[in-house]
Computed example of a mutant assay.
Amino acid sequence: MDDQSSYVLPQAQSTLTSPPTTPVPLTSPLRDWAEYYSWRGLDVDSPVAQLLSYPLSVYYILTTCLKQDNSKYFESLLRKDTLRILLLGVEKEVELLPVFKELVNLLPWVSIHIDMVGKSISKKCRRKILEDGQLSIALFRGDYHSWDGQEAGIIIGLNAGIAAYRCWQPTLEKILKQNTPSYFTDYCEYFVDITDQTLKGANSGEVTQKRLNPFRAPFRITSEDNYLPWFSNAVIFSVTPR
Rank of each mutant, 00 (worst) to 15 (best):
L52M: 09
L30Y: 08
Y187K: 03
L78K: 04
I221K: 06
F231M: 07
W147L: 02
P241A: 12
S76N: 06
D81I: 07
G201Y: 02
N105K: 10
C125Y: 15
P25Y: 00
L228V: 12
G149M: 05
K92D: 11
Y54V: 00
G133I: 01
T185D: 00
L9P: 08
D2W: 15
T17A: 05
T27R: 11
R220T: 12
T185Y: 03
S232M: 11
D196R: 08
V207Q: 02
T185Q: 04
Y60F: 11
E173H: 14
R211M: 02
G157Q: 06
K80R: 08
G153S: 03
R211C: 02
F237Q: 05
V44C: 10
P170R: 02
Y36N: 01
W33Q: 06
A138M: 06
G153F: 04
Q134A: 13
C188Q: 12
S6F: 12
G149A: 07
T180D: 03
P241G: 12
R211T: 07
S6P: 00
S223T: 07
A152D: 02
Q50E: 13
L135D: 03
D32E: 10
L130A: 09
W33K: 03
V99E: 04
K101T: 15
E102N: 15
I112V: 09
Q68W: 00
D148G: 11
L51I: 09
D143A: 10
W230F: 15
L139R: 06
D193N: 15
P218R: 02
V24R: 05
G201L: 05
T185F: 00
Y73V: 03
L87S: 11
Q197V: 13
Y54N: 08
S57K: 00
I121T: 08
A202S: 12
G133V: 01
K101L: 13
P25L: 00
S5D: 10
I129W: 09
S28H: 14
D32L: 03
D115T: 14
M116F: 08
R126E: 14
D186H: 15
S232N: 11
S14A: 13
A163E: 13
T21P: 14
E75C: 06
T22N: 15
L212I: 15
